[in-house]
């Protein structure tokens, strides 16, 4: 739980620092990292952490509740479903990358749909510009962790 709070605050601080520049979903990356590297017994905690983190983000940055609450929870559920559906032999680096990147993509796409076309496109491109390298880095760390666990 504590690392997730740290990453939530980090994402918040970076958003404060950069103003209108769209930040990648660092908090969500930390949740997905937990889902992929820790045991299934923590999944329920991660689901409610996503819920609370999304709710806090809505209250801090959106002004009404529900938007990121649902996005984050849905992403976590999708990752749980995808990860449990895959056989151990199918859990390759590229799949891990797509899970991290997908986790970044879903809230971005939902937010993109709520904005005007030009502003939404700019926001989406800038956020993905940061999100893809971060997803790659997370994949690398996750892959190393899974290998060391095995």
């Amino acid at each position: 739980m504590m690392p997730h709070i740290f990453f939530w605050l980090l994402q918040d601080f970076l958003s404060v620092l950069t103003g209108s520049f769209p930040m990648p979903e660092i908090f969500l990356l930390s949740l997905v990292y937990s889902l992929l590297t820790e045991g299934r017994e923590n999944n329920v905690i991660v689901i409610w952490t996503a819920f609370l983190g999304g709710l806090a983000w809505d209250l801090r940055w959106v002004g009404f509740t529900g938007f990121f609450t649902i996005s984050y929870t849905a992403v976590v559920l999708l990752v749980i479903w995808a990860w449990s559906a895959l056989p151990v032999s199918g859990r390759t680096t590229s799949i891990i990358f797509f899970l991290f990147w997908g986790a970044q993509l879903i809230p971005s796409v939902l937010f993109f749909l709520t904005l005007e076309r030009d502003a939404g496109t700019t926001f989406f491109v800038m956020q993905q510009g940061c999100a893809v390298p971060l997803s790659l880095l997370s994949t690398l760390l996750c892959y190393k962790r899974i290998n060391s666990n095995n």
């Binding site: 689901i47 996503a50 609450t69």
Partner: peptide, 17 residues
């Protein structure tokens, strides 16, 4: 248990929205 919690969280999120 995971799915019950997940659906509950989603339902609560929708309710809040």
């Amino acid at each position: 248990l995971e799915w019950v919690n997940g659906v509950a969280a989603l339902a609560l999120g929708l309710l809040l929205l």
